[in-house]
Amino acid sequence: MEIKRIESMEQVKQLTISPERKFYSATHEEILGGATTDVYFVKTLEILDHLKLGETPVVAEIFPRREGLLAGVQEVINLFSGRDVSIWSLPEGSSFKAKEVVMRLEGPYNQLGLYETALLGILASSSGWATAARAAKKAAGQKPVYCFGARHVHPAVAPVMERAALVGGADGASCILGAKLAGKEPVGTVPHAVFLIVGDTVKVARTYDEIMPPDALRLVLVDTFKDEAEEALRVAEALGKSLHGIRLDTPSERGGVTPELVKEVRSRLDMAGYHHVKIFVSGGLYPEKIEALAVAGADAFGVGSFISGAPPIDMTMDLKVVGGQAVAKRGRIPGITPNDRLQKVL
C-alpha cells in the first residue's frame, strides 16, 4: 500500500501496521515514503521546515570506511528519480579505496535528507556482497563462480544480494528473481532431497536428462549415497556424452570437499575415458579453498555463505556545502572533495 512521504513526527505516530501484514520487510512504497529512515532525519526535516530552511541547497558526499567494489548505484538512482537531486557516482562495479568519495549528491536538503539511511544501507550491503563475490572470482581465476547464497539471508534481500554478487563478477546466481533483475537466467541443478526421495542417483540423473530442456546443463550431485568417485562413474556411464559434469558437495561431517577428493574423482573419470565431464564444487567455499580446489582440478564453484555473509562496507554521508558555503564538521575538510572518477548519473 502506498504511503505518503513522512515529513513530521505526527506522521510517524499515525503510521500504523496492519495486523494482516505477513512479512516484516519494507515494500518499495515504504522505502520511497521514508518509512525505513532513522527517525532523527524526520525530526531534522521538521526543525528545518519550522525555520523555513528545508529548501537549503546542499552538497553531500559519501565515502566508505574500507576499500571494496561499489554496488547499489542503480537503486540509489531509482530512489531519487523524479526529485530535484543531482547525483555523481563511481560507475557500478568500480573498485574504490578507503575514504574515497564514491558518490556526490546535490539538491535541496528536504529532497535528500530523508533518504540518507536508505541510500547508505543500499550501498553498504550491496558493496559488501559485491566485494566478497569479487574475491571468490579472483580465487577461481578463469573458472566460473555461481552465487548460491539466497538461503542464508532474508528472502526480501536475497535478490539484492545475488544481483550484487553478479556486479562483483559472479558468473551466475541461483535465486530466480536475483538473476532476472540482473538480466540473466537462474542457474542450479537439483538438491539432495530429490535423490533421497527417489533413492538412486542414476535414476534421478536419467530422469533429469529425459525431462529437462536441452539448455539445462546435465550436472549431477554424486555424494548422496556412495563414494563420490564410484557414483561419478555410474552417472557418467549412464548419461555418456550428454553429461556435462558432476557436483561435489560432501558435508563437513565427512570431511567436506578436499583437493585430494577432487584429484581422485578427476583421475578416475579420465581413466574411464570421461575427459569431458566437469567437476563442480560447492559447500562452505571461501577464496583460499577455491584456489586450492581449482589447482586440484575443480572446474566451477558454487559459493554461498562467503558472499551472503559478507559484512557491509560502512558508508558515511557528510554535508560539504550548505547554501553555497563550504562546511564540514570537526575532523573533516570543508568543501567538495575532488574525484575525477565520478560521473553524472542523475
Rank of each mutant, 00 (worst) to 15 (best):
198 V>H: 02
43 K>Q: 14
284 G>V: 05
153 V>I: 13
237 E>W: 01
332 R>Y: 09
77 I>F: 03
266 R>L: 07
253 E>V: 15
123 L>D: 02
252 S>I: 15
49 D>F: 02
124 A>G: 11
283 G>Y: 00
288 E>R: 15
73 V>H: 04
189 T>K: 02
125 S>C: 07
159 P>E: 07
172 G>N: 07
321 V>E: 10
75 E>C: 03
300 A>F: 04
100 E>G: 01
236 A>L: 09
34 G>N: 05
113 G>K: 00
163 R>V: 00
271 M>E: 15
284 G>S: 09
41 F>V: 14
51 L>I: 02
326 A>P: 03
253 E>A: 15
113 G>W: 03
147 C>T: 12
21 R>W: 06
250 T>C: 09
328 A>Y: 06
42 V>Q: 00
200 D>K: 06
312 P>F: 05
51 L>N: 11
105 L>T: 08
132 A>L: 04
187 V>T: 11
324 G>K: 09
242 S>W: 01
86 S>C: 08
148 F>E: 01
18 S>G: 06
100 E>N: 08
328 A>I: 14
167 V>H: 09
31 I>Q: 03
124 A>C: 03
222 V>G: 04
168 G>C: 04
174 S>Y: 03
80 F>Q: 00
162 E>K: 07
120 L>K: 02
7 E>R: 14
284 G>I: 05
341 R>L: 11
217 L>D: 08
117 T>F: 01
266 R>Q: 08
188 G>N: 01
114 L>W: 05
230 E>F: 02
60 A>Q: 08
73 V>L: 10
100 E>D: 08
115 Y>K: 10
61 E>Q: 15
295 V>Y: 13
128 G>W: 01
100 E>T: 05
37 T>C: 12
187 V>P: 10
271 M>L: 14
101 V>T: 13
125 S>R: 14
328 A>D: 11
267 S>R: 15
37 T>I: 10
311 P>Q: 10
242 S>L: 11
21 R>M: 13
93 G>T: 06
66 R>I: 13
186 P>I: 00
338 P>V: 12
180 K>E: 15
67 E>T: 10
59 V>R: 06
299 D>E: 09
272 A>E: 11
242 S>R: 13
7 E>I: 08
113 G>C: 03
339 N>T: 12
74 Q>H: 10
135 A>Y: 05
291 E>A: 15
162 E>V: 09
29 E>H: 09
230 E>S: 07
117 T>R: 12
77 I>C: 12
216 A>Y: 12
87 I>W: 01
193 A>C: 09
167 V>M: 12
128 G>T: 00
64 P>M: 10
58 V>P: 00
140 A>Q: 03
269 L>I: 00
34 G>H: 04
90 L>R: 11
338 P>R: 09
138 K>H: 11
203 K>E: 15
237 E>M: 04
147 C>V: 13
150 A>E: 07
329 K>W: 06
152 H>S: 13
327 V>Q: 07
14 Q>M: 11
327 V>N: 04
254 R>T: 01
335 G>K: 08
181 L>P: 02
207 T>V: 13
1 M>V: 08
157 V>M: 04
299 D>W: 03
217 L>C: 01
117 T>G: 07
129 W>S: 07
197 I>R: 14
290 I>S: 05
23 F>H: 14
18 S>E: 14
296 A>E: 04
169 G>R: 12
280 F>Y: 10
33 G>P: 02
158 A>D: 05
173 A>E: 00
